[in-house]
């Protein structure tokens, strides 16, 4: 089927069918809607929130640890309470989501590019190149991700860019392995042989012909990895190795509040925890269903 039609209509129809198939699952659509809402909230946080929690000028230690619903000195209500430094939790969660989503999506995208390229090269070149790359992948996957990330951050120091870099190093191997698997199948197909016969340059074969046909599994892995990256970033921040303390992401907000759990100030870590949970679950719902829709074996 994939060899019968020219590119434009071929892309068009499957997409429409894909959309229809995706819409079959209410849960997945619900997940997508929730995720879009969260993403919009994060994107427009500076216009939605009553406070910029990262500006030390705007937060006041005297507002610290106020329960949800308290009216603060700044003239607005802390609907979700405040943390120990007097940050409005609602504002802090939306700003924290910005960082979490940015780090999660950014690292997943970069890791996908790096991993997919290496996977394609491995599958297409075969032989020693293939072995070398895949052994590197095995090596990478044999270490617990959190351990590798911890070591990288301990070496590079804190900061958002370093977290992204650490996550890319931890995650690229998953993409490489996935893409290599499907590329190995695709490269024996007739259209690749035809491309060979036309003497097309290698990079063109790799990225214009092979890659598009490896995309479905890549998209599924990428969706799952975004959720994983967000969780990993939260873990790193929770351990105090991620973002700066004055610009907390969700993980750091949870870590700050964790110390107050026994003293009854539950909201400091409860609400960021809920936000993290909802984000990851919604992404995973979408990802799960994407896998079902895009998996040719599950079709028909």
């Amino acid at each position: 089927m994939s060899t019968t039609t020219a590119p434009p209509p071929r892309v068009e129809t499957p997409l429409r069918r894909f959309a229809a198939e995706f819409a079959e699952s209410r849960i997945a659509v619900g997940g997508l809607v929730v995720f879009v809402l969260i993403a919009l909230g994060a994107l427009f946080a500076p216009w939605i929130t009553p406070q910029n929690p990262y500006d030390l000028m705007q937060i006041d230690i005297m507002d610290g640890r106020q329960p949800p619903g308290t009216s603060g000195g700044a003239g607005f209500t802390f609907w979700l309470g405040t943390d120990d430094q007097g940050r409005d939790m609602f504002s802090a969660i939306l700003y924290g989501l910005r960082i979490s989503l940015l780090v999660g999506a950014g690292s997943a995208l970069i890791a996908a590019m790096v991993g997919a390229s290496l996977g394609l090269i491995a599958a297409y070149a075969g032989g020693r190149t293939d072995s070398a790359i895949m052994r590197l992948v095995d090596l990478q996957l044999s270490f617990p991700a959190i351990l590798v990330a911890l070591m990288i951050l301990a070496f590079l120091g804190k900061g958002i860019l370093n977290v992204v870099l650490a996550l890319v190093i931890v995650e690229w191997a998953y993409y490489a392995r996935t893409v290599r698997g499907s590329a190995l199948v695709e490269r024996r197909r007739e259209y690749i042989e035809a491309a060979h016969c036309l003497a097309l340059p290698t990079h063109r074969i790799l990225f214009r012909h092979l890659l598009p046909n490896c995309l479905p599994p890549l998209i599924v892995v990428a969706t799952m990895q975004v959720a994983r990256a967000i969780a990993l970033e939260a873990t790193l921040s929770f351990l105090g190795l991620g973002v700066p303390i004055t610009e907390p992401s969700l993980g750091l907000l949870i870590a700050n509040g964790y110390q107050y759990m026994l003293s009854g100030h539950y909201w400091i870590s409860f609400y960021p925890g809920i936000a993290l949970l909802i984000t990851i679950v919604s992404i995973n719902l979408v990802g799960d269903h994407l896998r079902d829709v895009l998996n040719p074996r599950l079709k028909r």
């Binding site: 030390l56 006041d60 230690i61 430094q85 004055t246």
Partner: peptide
């Protein structure tokens, strides 16, 4: 962090 707030003010 608290001193950071105070100095910034």
């Amino acid at each position: 962090q608290a001193i950071g707030q105070m100095w910034t003010r």
